[in-house]
Design a protein around this nucleic acid. Structure first.
Lengths: 241, 241
DNA sequence: ACAAAAGTGTTGATAATACACCCATGT
DNA sequence: ACATGGGTGTATTATCAACACTTTTGT
C-alpha cells in the first residue's frame, strides 16, 4: 500500500518533515585466510527470532557518524582491530529482512591477517572463524550479504592487491598462490603466477627463508604497499591477476 | 559525542527499541548520450538552502519498498520511463550532507536512450539534460554522487554491454565508437574497435543504411541482448572493451 | 637415500597495436 | 567534381598458456 505523504511531492521540505524514518545498520563480512581456505568471522545470534543462528557482525548506525565510521567502530568493538582494509559493498533493503521492523543494512567487507589476531577470550563463545563454504542458513539475509561480499572480493582481488591484507607481512609465493586459488576457486600455473607477480616489481625479496618446515624452505617476500601507491597515483600500473 | 544507548550493546532487541532513526533517500544519476557527449538529467533544486542549484533526481524511500523499488518509482515519476538499466552504486552518509537533518542517500545510476525520450512538458522548467563536464557546484553532495556514479559507469561499460542502453536500438558502429570514446575520454582505433565488436558475435547486421546524411550512409546494427544473456549464462563470454 | 615441497625457461598460440587508402552519398 | 565521413587488411609486437625436471631441506 502506498502512502500519500512523502511520496514524490516535489517539495523537499514538507516531504522531509513528514518522512518515514528508518533504522540503518552496518553488517561486516570479516574475511580471513588460514592457509587452507577462506574464513569468515561469524557470531552466534542472540536475538530471539534467530537464536543460535550464525550471523555477521553488525550494529545500528549512529546519527552522528558516517557508515564508514560505523563499520570501523563495529570492527574495533568486535575484533579489537584497527586500520583494517574495509570496503562498502551494497545496501540491503527488503522491508521484511528484519523481524523487528524496517532496517536497511549496508554491507561492508573487511580483511584480517588471521594469524596475527586472537579472538577476545570474553567473546570466544560467541565468535568463531567459519569456512565460507560451510555456512548455510544464517540469521536475517546474512547469507545473501555474505555471498554478495564474497563475489565482490573475488572480483576486486584480481584488480587490487587485497590478497596481501589476508597474509602475514612475510609470506611465500606459494602461500600467495594458494590464497588466490582458494578464493577464486581456480587453479593457477605455478611458473606463470610467479612470473606475473615478480614482474609487477612490487614484491620485496626479504632474503629470508621459512623456518622449521620439513622440506625445502621457501623464500619470504613482503608487498611494497608504498611503491604500489606511488605507481598507482602516477597511473603507470595495472595490477591484474 | 557518543551516545550510550544503542551502541555496541551486544543485545539486538534493546538496541533496536532505542535506536536512532534515520531518513533514507535514493538519488539517481540518469545518464544519456546525444551523439556528442555524456549527459545527465538535472533538476533545479527548490529547497530553500539550495534554491537554484543543480541537483540529481531523488526522493525519500518508503518503509514498504526496497531501494531498487524506490529508484524505479522515482525514475518513473520524473521521466515517465520504465525498464531502464539501473544499478546501485553506493550509500552517502556524511551526517552534515543534508541541511534539514540526518539523511543517508543511496546512489543509483540509470541509462536512457535520450533520442527516444522527451522531457515531460510540465517539468521542462525544472528538468534538463546537462553535459557531465559542465556541472560544477551542486546541491547537497550531489557533485560527489555524480562523479562516483560516473566512475562506476566508466568501469562497468568496459565489462558489460551498457553502451547499447544509451544508443537508439538501431545504431552505427561509429556512433558506438564515439560513445565509448566520449564516456571513457580516450581515443580508439577505428579498425581495431570494429574488429573487436564484430568478433563478439553479438551485433545484428540490419542490412539497413542511415537515412538523409550528406555523406556516405553508415550501416545500421542492433545488439543481440538475448544472445548475450545466453552466452553469459553458459559462461563462454568475456565482454571487454 | 628418501620424501616433500620449492624453484626455474622455453615454446607456440592468441590477442593487441599501428597504420593508409578507397568508397558511397549529397550538394 | 568535390566535400564529408564510412569502410576495409596486414604486419608487428606483446601477452598468455602449456609444460617437466632439478634443488633444498628434514628425517
Amino acid at each position: 500500500m502506498k502512502k500519500s505523504i512523502g511520496v514524490n511531492k516535489r517539495d523537499n521540505v514538507k516531504e522531509f518533515e513528514q518522512a518515514d524514518s528508518t533504522t540503518v545498520s552496518v553488517d561486516c563480512v570479516v574475511f580471513g585466510y588460514d592457509g587452507y581456505g577462506l574464513k569468515v568471522l561469524i557470531m552466534d545470534c542472540t536475538m530471539p527470532h534467530f537464536k543460535g543462528y550464525d550471523s555477521l557482525i553488525g550494529e545500528l548506525v549512529l546519527k552522528s557518524e558516517t557508515l564508514d565510521e560505523a563499520a570501523k567502530r563495529i570492527l574495533q568493538y568486535w575484533t579489537g582491530l584497527d586500520n583494517l582494509y574495509l570496503e562498502q559493498v551494497k545496501a540491503f533493503s527488503d522491508p521484511g529482512r528484519h523481524p523487528l521492523g524496517r532496517v536497511i543494512s549496508v554491507a561492508y567487507y573487511s580483511l584480517v591477517q588471521i594469524d596475527n589476531y586472537k579472538i577476545d577470550p570474553q567473546l570466544k563463545d560467541r565468535l568463531r572463524w567459519a569456512d565460507v563454504n560451510e555456512l548455510g542458513q544464517m540469521a536475517f539475509d546474512h547469507y545473501d550479504i555474505l555471498h554478495s561480499c564474497l563475489s565482490t572480493l573475488q572480483k576486486k582481488i584480481r584488480e587490487k592487491p587485497l590478497g596481501f591484507s589476508l597474509l602475514p607481512k612475510k609470506f611465500t609465493l606459494i602461500q600467495l598462490q594458494n590464497l588466490y586459488e582458494s578464493i577464486l576457486s581456480i587453479e593457477l600455473d605455478k611458473r606463470n603466477f610467479r612470473r606475473k607477480l615478480t614482474n609487477l616489481g612490487l614484491l620485496i625479496d626479504l632474503d629470508e627463508l621459512q623456518q622449521s618446515v620439513n622440506h625445502r624452505p621457501a623464500k619470504l617476500y613482503s608487498f611494497d604497499f608504498e611503491k604500489y601507491r606511488k605507481k598507482k597515483s602516477k597511473g603507470n600500473l595495472q595490477f591484474e591477476i
